[in-house]
Simulated assay, not measured.
Amino acid sequence: MEITVNHQNHQLKETCSVEQMLVILLSGDAKGIAVAINQTIITKSNWSNHLLKDGDQVMLIKATQGG
């Protein structure tokens, strides 16, 4: 299965949840991350339930401090 994350293609062996994808791609460090799939925000409470599909466009946004 192929998905696009922040404009880069990634191959996943099988269907997985947003939560599982974050563990694979970020080594489990998902603090301060917002996730949008196909331009729809996925709330953190739904990460374990939302299954990715082949061709999904994923945008990961990391909160930063500054001013």
Score class of each variant (00 low, 15 high):
Q57F: 06
L51V: 04
E14P: 02
V35T: 08
I33P: 04
I41K: 09
A34H: 05
V23W: 11
T15P: 07
N38E: 09
L51N: 13
I24M: 13
L26D: 03
A36H: 09
E19G: 03
E19R: 11
N49S: 15
N46W: 08
N38C: 12
T43R: 15
E14D: 14
T40W: 06
I33T: 12
A30I: 08
H7L: 10
S45D: 12
Q39H: 14
N38F: 11
Q8F: 06
S17V: 04
T15D: 09
V18G: 02
I3Y: 01
G32Y: 07
D54M: 06
L52K: 02
W47D: 01
I24F: 12
I41L: 12
V35F: 07
C16D: 01
D54A: 15
I42W: 05
N9D: 07
K62R: 15
Q65I: 01
I3Q: 00
Q20L: 07
G67D: 00
Q20T: 13
L60V: 02
Q65P: 00
N9V: 11
D56Q: 02
I61M: 08
V58T: 00
Q39L: 09
Q11Y: 12
N49K: 15
D29R: 13
K62P: 00
T4Y: 06
Q39E: 12
Q39K: 14
I24E: 14
I24H: 14
A63Y: 02
L22Y: 03
L12I: 12
V18H: 01
Q57M: 09
H50A: 07
S45F: 04
S45Y: 05
G32L: 05
T15S: 15
S45Q: 13
K44Y: 09
L12N: 00
K44V: 10
H10G: 02
Q20G: 05
M21N: 03
D54C: 09
V5L: 04
K62A: 06
Q8A: 11
A36K: 13
D29F: 10
I33Q: 08
G32M: 06
Q11N: 13
N46D: 15
M59T: 10
N6H: 03
K31M: 11
Q20M: 10
L25W: 03
I3K: 00
W47K: 04
G66M: 03
T40L: 10
T64F: 03
S17D: 02
T43I: 07
D29Q: 14
Q57W: 04
V23Q: 14
D54R: 09
S17A: 06
W47Y: 15
N38I: 14
S27L: 06
L25C: 10
K44W: 11
T40E: 12
N46H: 15
A34V: 15
L51A: 09
E2I: 11
G28R: 07
L52W: 01
I37P: 02
K13S: 15
V5W: 01
V58N: 00
A34Q: 08
D56H: 02
Q65A: 01
I61L: 09
